[in-house]
Design a protein around this nucleic acid. Sequence first.
DNA 1: CTTGACCTTGACATCAGTGTCAAACTCTAG
DNA 2: CTAGAGTTTGACACTGATGTCAAGGTCAAG
Lengths: 133, 133
Amino acid sequence: MKIGELAARTGVSPRLIRYYEQQGLLVADRAANGYRAYTEQHVERVDRVAGLVQAGIPTRLVKVLLDAEDAAERKDPTCPREVAAQLAEELVGVQARIDCLTRSRDTIRDFLMATQHEILLRDTPAPPTPLPR
Amino acid sequence: MKIGELAARTGVSPRLIRYYEQQGLLVADRAANGYRAYTEQHVERVDRVAGLVQAGIPTRLVKVLLDAEDAAERKDPTCPREVAAQLAEELVGVQARIDCLTRSRDTIRDFLMATQHEILLRDTPAPPTPLPR
DNA sequence: CTTGACCTTGACATCAGTGTCAAACTCTAG
DNA sequence: CTAGAGTTTGACACTGATGTCAAGGTCAAG
């Protein structure tokens, strides 16, 4: 598929898709005419990248994260200690973000409940199930 | 306490603290000399703001979120439907970020385990406990 | 009183993420 | 063959979050 379709399917503008590629987060084949050619897998990839970027992860780190995911997928346990350390480092940052967002999510949800606006709550996950810490 | 101490305690630069105030995310008392004066509560507030901003929530929305939290805390169920709708809207965005980050966190954690780097895993939460969706 | 550390405001700079526009090319439909 | 839609690259612009610097006020220590 071409970039326009990929953009349509991911909700990410072509401009941004090219930007991500330029940042090394994406690799696109090229058709004979020079057009970028994408596969189904790219759809997922772009969604993932956009999601992380929107979650405040700088592209530089998105690359690290996704590279690790790729390695994991390939069952490629090649991981120099240095990289592992960087990932571990990043992990705490990610967890911090999750905690902060979770707190806000819970507060918003509770608030909407308290103000009789439950109707607005769609597919947001399970109720105040306090997770085992 | 003055801005320097607040900055030290939160790890947020004075510059940024002033910026947050300017964006309406913070309200600071003023001492007779014009210096901003903060209380313990501000420490928490600044942590919270910084956390959300780092998690990719634009300051404009951080304000909405925190205002709702404040309202909730004051047991103030005054909430025009319009505001509630906006919050509900924001909720799905927050949840999307959480999902995306959670996925990355799990992948990183799994990856570090798989590569025999468990040692690097500090206080990151419970193992692959698949949450009930 | 002077000095040094910290505060104030405001201007300017930077970086990342995005949008927009232009010029040129490709392809498909008519 | 031509028109229109989509693509490519590259330049420029903008916004939000931050850093930095300057000029001047405050204050505590010496």
